[in-house]
Nucleic acid binder design. Structure first.
Length: 550
DNA sequence: GCTGCCGGGAA
DNA sequence: TTCCCGGCAGC
């Protein structure tokens, strides 16, 4: 059971980007497992990433150690799949679907075994702990490591990048997101098994928005194939923070904790186990906006926007509903707050109006992958690679962050969401949900490290920034570069002013304005308590005497 | 402790 | 708007 969980959580087969640097300039990496019999766990130092994987608990006295390696592949290897370890998965999966890919890979001698193993686990049957386990592990290793998602036969660089991004995000989620503690079990499975099948036959249940399956979703129901995960099925909403790739509003970073905002309500609730107010959720209307340059078309359904992108921008056959998910990166989700009472008025206080006032830059549709400005606007993002056609990660991250603070904030900089809709609709902003308590008293501190990271998207929140808002306690902290240089100044200045106003002690002003106590005779003294009815009205009311003013 | 009066609630 | 009162602050 545990072993299986580990396997499922394994990143084997995932492709990730190495951080920009001398060694790995974003070169695609594949996580592979190398079996090393009888090796001590502590000696697995060959790989970039090491981890003791499953099997240690079921292999008996003889321990097999698997070293997870990050292997590098050239663009050609990844994109063409003509050679190298990735080839099998590419070929096998090129028939549109992980599940199929998995099966294809497992089509060998190990497939039935794997299936039986799964079934056996499902039925709670004990497994044969001996050689069978070993072979199973090897098979599993094969299956997992080779089942790298290859969405479709049409294997363009963009698609490759999408996979990379997905893998990277998964890894990020696994390592950083507390939320992933339980859901993550599905990650590798999703990647290796049923991602692309979510829409149709796979065990995965497509999230409410995943009409195309272009983005990965964890909204897998209680994983029918894996009873070992007690986690209850999460609602589609609960996964919003994770569906970043397709959600422009998405909160923050690639996964979870960093992203506060937008989906804050969801994200925070997930992070802090706070129930999500139904009211707000119901008041949010979701729209989908095309991010294609100079387009900005807004549709009410994901399918519609995808079709739009597919046909209008990608020039694909409109008759075909087939989608490889590419469209997902060209539109963003916009939440419109339809609840007037809880809408802008309620939210604005959280973000001082001054913050919202900065002149909006000219509409600049955040054209994700193609937008040159985006890259120039965010020179820093270690997690972000230069804005090349390949770099969908940038788009995703930007999109998410823009969403995080979305709206006008997000609409800002380099490629934010300064689209007509985002500007006209207060919605984006809404993504920063606040509690009134916080609004009222919150001492707001915005420690900005003032790095060169001029925020592109709206505020320029980058994955490396930490943006945290506590909805429970007044202190609200914004850490990291939240805005672009030019904008940040105005932003911070105005903000500080606002803060000053907010924090100004009422008492102090009251003391200054408090009427100096009159030393003269007052009605009370003159008439005494007995003749109170002779007092002036003010005196009777304990107000400043109007009769004997000083 | 007395007194002036601000802030705010109730009618 | 009027009436009333809790509570703060000066003395």
């Amino acid at each position: 059971m545990h072993a299986r969980r580990l396997v499922k959580r394994s990143v084997l087969g995932s492709r990730v980007y190495a951080p920009p640097g001398p060694a790995g300039d974003g070169a695609p990496l594949a996580v592979q497992a190398v079996k090393q019999d009888n090796r001590d766990l502590s000696t697995t130092g060959t790989g970039t990433t090491t981890t003791g994987t499953g099997g240690t608990g079921t292999t008996g006295p003889r321990r097999n150690v698997y070293t997870v390696l990050l292997k590098e592949f050239t663009e050609e290897e990844v994109a063409c799949g003509t050679k190298g370890p990735l080839k099998p998965s590419l070929k096998q999966n090129s028939n549109n679907g992980f599940g199929k890919g998995l099966k294809g890979e497992a089509g060998g001698p190990g497939a039935p075994e794997e299936q039986r193993l799964a079934e056996g686990k499902r039925l709670g049957r004990p497994l044969d702990p001996d050689a069978r386990s070993v072979s199973l592990l090897e098979q599993k290793r094969k299956v997992v490591s080779s089942s790298i998602d290859v969405p479709h036969a049409r294997r363009s660089e963009e698609e490759v990048d999408m996979d990379k991004v997905t893998a990277a995000m998964v890894l990020t989620s696994l390592s950083t997101s507390p939320l992933v503690r339980s859901p993550p079990v599905k990650v590798s499975e999703g990647l290796s098994g049923s991602w692309k099948e979510t829409g149709s036959t796979g065990p995965f249940t497509p999230s409410s928005y995943s009409s195309s399956g272009g983005y990965w979703s964890w909204s897998a129901p209680s994983d029918q194939s894996n009873p070992s995960t007690p986690s209850p099925p999460l609602s589609a909403d609960s996964f919003k923070p994770f569906r970043v790739p397709s959600l422009g509003n998405g909160g923050g970073g690639p996964a979870g904790p960093e992203d506060p905002s937008l989906d804050d309500q969801d994200g925070s609730s997930l992070l802090f186990d706070e129930p999500i107010p139904r009211k707000r959720k119901n008041s949010m209307k979701v729209m989908f906006k095309c991010l294609w340059k100079n387009c900005g078309k807004v549709l009410s359904t994901a399918a519609g926007i995808q079709r739009h992108i597919r046909t209008v921008h990608l020039g694909r056959n409109c008759d075909s509903d087939w989608s490889d998910g590419e469209e997902d990166f060209y539109y963003t989700e916009i939440k419109l707050n339809t609840d007037a009472a809880d809408g802008l008025g309620g939210l604005c206080p959280a973000l001082p109006s001054a913050l919202l006032s900065p002149p909006l830059p000219p509409p600049h549709p955040p054209h994700l992958p193609h937008h040159p400005a985006a890259g120039s606007a965010q020179p820093c993002g270690d997690a972000l690679r230069p804005p090349t056609q390949n770099n969908i990660a940038v788009a995703v991250a930007k999109d998410n962050h823009g969403g995080a603070c979305n709206g006008r904030l997000g609409g800002g900089g380099g490629g934010g969401g300064a689209t007509p809709l985002s500007r006209s609709a207060p919605s984006a902003l809404y993504l920063i949900h606040t509690d009134h308590a916080y609004q009222a008293t919150a001492p707001v501190s915005i420690p900005s490290n003032g790095s060169s990271c001029g925020g592109p998207a709206l505020g320029g929140f980058t994955p490396t920034n930490s943006f945290s808002i506590s909805w429970q306690s007044p202190p609200v902290t914004f850490t990291g570069n939240s805005v672009s240089p030019s904008k940040s100044q105005g932003f911070s200045e105005q903000r500080s002013q606002t803060i000053a106003v907010l924090s100004s002690p009422p008492r102090a002003t009251a003391a200054l304005s408090r009427k100096v106590r009159g030393e003269g005779k007052k009605c009370r003294k003159v008439y005494g308590m007995e003749n109170r009815d002779m007092w002036c009205t003010a005196c009777r009311w304990k107000k400043a005497c109007q009769r004997f003013t000083d």
